[in-house]
């Protein structure tokens, strides 16, 4: 299934923006309709190409945030202050506008719904997007894999997918979501506030057992730190898959 989908060279496609969902003050989800789209695996990404009138063009990679759904593809884009591409995607692009992209890309940072191993998803900032695709796919596919999403964000104001995060957290015990607030928590929050540390990660990872598969995504510093903590818990390098967005913390 997935194997057939990766045959052939990848061509640029033209999608159309169908809908926008504002997630936070600086991030929004672009819902795209992409004719000719080949169904993706959660965790995969697309490359977006913007071309100026003078012919100058630039590319960026964005993780897919949605579960496979025909020709629909959702990307969550965080606006970077000095970004070259994200300001256009978050402030200018409007429903009905075309957008050039190629994908789905990447067979390494991808979760296969038929894999029944327990999964730990750890995301920092907008690094939660491909992990959300995995959680959404787990629900849509009827998978019974134990999956735990741990999402580190600065404050309630930067929390992506806020409503969905709550419903995930309240689900059955086999799919859970935990938010780590690093700077400020919502009113009435009884948990700790601060970076994900060894003690907290151990508490979250241990119930998943020694055979847990880990996906870590976010800014480089977050990914390095978290991967090191997981190795410190005794997990092997082959159990930990990482995707780093670079030092800026933006999506690529």
């Amino acid at each position: 299934m997935a194997r057939a989908a990766v045959l052939g060279r990848l061509n640029w496609l033209v999608g159309q923006l169908a809908e926008i969902r504002q997630e936070t003050a600086t991030a929004r989800t672009l819902v795209l309709d992409v004719p000719g789209w080949t169904e993706h695996l959660p965790g995969q990404h697309v490359d977006i190409r913007l071309t100026a009138e003078d012919g100058y063009s630039t590319e960026r990679s964005y993780s897919i945030a949605s579960a496979p759904n025909g020709s629909r593809v959702e990307l969550t884009v965080e606006r970077l202050e000095d970004g070259e591409v994200s300001p256009y995607l978050t402030e200018v692009l409007s429903p009905g506008d075309p957008l050039e992209l190629r994908g789905p890309i990447g067979g390494y940072f991808a979760w296969h719904p038929e894999d029944v191993s327990p999964v730990l998803l750890t995301g920092g900032g907008s690094g939660v997007a491909p992990l959300m695709a995995m959680a959404r796919t787990r629900i849509a596919s009827g998978s019974t894999a134990v999956m735990r999403l741990v999402y580190s964000t600065r404050s309630p104001a930067t929390l992506l997918y806020a409503a969905e995060m709550q419903s995930l957290a309240a689900r059955d015990g086999r799919l859970t979501a935990d938010v780590i607030y690093t700077r400020a928590a919502p009113p009435g929050w009884s948990g700790p506030v601060g970076r994900l540390d060894a003690g907290r990660l151990k508490e979250l990872a241990e119930p998943l057992g020694p055979g847990v598969q880990c996906f870590v995504c976010g800014p480089t510093g977050f990914v390095e730190g978290t991967a090191n903590l997981l190795v410190g818990l005794g997990l092997g390098a082959r159990q930990i898959r990482t995707e780093r967005f670079g030092p800026s913390g933006g999506t690529s």
Partner: peptide, 24 residues
């Protein structure tokens, strides 16, 4: 420079050349 990303992001450019994902 510490301005790098993962080999993951090489997936698209390489798929212009190869018919399978080489990053995996």
């Amino acid at each position: 420079s510490d301005n790098w990303t993962d080999g993951n992001s090489l997936g698209g450019p390489l798929r212009e050349v190869f018919s399978v994902d080489i990053t995996a």
